[in-house]
Design a binder for these strands. Sequence first.
DNA 1: ATGAGTGCAAAAAGTTTGCACCGCT
DNA 2: AGCGGTGCAAACTTTTTGCACTCAT
Lengths: 163, 163
Amino acid sequence: MNDLGGVEVAVSPKDKFREFLETRSKRLTTERATLVEEVFAMHEHFDTDLMVARLANRKDGRSVSRSTVYRGLTELVEAGLIRRVARTNGREVYEHDYGYPEHDHLICSKCQKMIEFRNTEVRRIIEAIAREQGFQLSGHRLEAQGLCSDCGRPRRHRKLDMI
Amino acid sequence: MNDLGGVEVAVSPKDKFREFLETRSKRLTTERATLVEEVFAMHEHFDTDLMVARLANRKDGRSVSRSTVYRGLTELVEAGLIRRVARTNGREVYEHDYGYPEHDHLICSKCQKMIEFRNTEVRRIIEAIAREQGFQLSGHRLEAQGLCSDCGRPRRHRKLDMI
DNA sequence: ATGAGTGCAAAAAGTTTGCACCGCT
DNA sequence: AGCGGTGCAAACTTTTTGCACTCAT
């Protein structure tokens, strides 16, 4: 049993990845294994750049090239292990999808902070609508934009923008 | 009074754009006027490329350069006239935000078709959650992925992929 | 004269891909 | 021998930006 931040899962991400790869006659190579490990060693959101950087800093030297990271993250998405949650600063942002409860995000337009929230109602509504439309739902992405409590608070000691 | 596909609005998009521009000491130039016109002459979703193409095909020859279209669409978003709804094939997809009722989308992962749906519950839930978090909501984007009824239907006469 | 605006071409930035070599996770 | 896999660098896409010139919505 693995504990992935609140939810227990019987099969490790790595195993799940291997299973997926097998269905495509692909192999769980050292690089792919290193990637899953690194991805699931992290519980925050991340983008490709951050992942490449973390892989470059491993003490065991098992680095993975940028191309392979791109290819691997796509596979992980297809495998249902991670998902693309949002897009910040022009980059795709990822998070765990496996072993992590479904949730959505409030994203601050100013500081880009992402606040997770969980609400089963939203999903239920989407499911109902999909059913009505004969649409085979596979996932969703809900991002609410606005200002977080820090950025939205009117400041009295506002710094001047000019010199 | 203008009719924008179901909702009547007192001020035309162009006027609203002009008002917005004034608050930034910007002018409603010929190019910007042409762009708003073209954007609101269209009732479907569009991306920058399509808009550039349509502008290039105007019979009155009032074309607008690609850079100006990019700059202008950003301004239109800031003005609240259009919004970025989704991202398909690596491109941002836009739609009217002004004079058009709030809604969300089901997006087919195969043919990219976008099906609009309206549901006030979703918005209400997001508002409640934002309130709880002291988050100043400005908008949201909800895209559900899956297969549309056409693409999801199992085909018996499936064409072979090879030659 | 002035400040904003445009178009062009070049630059960014993120992501994908062709290819030669590698290796059996 | 075979097929998938990797890394590198080059290519590609979309979007942004520097700049010189224009214009007055």
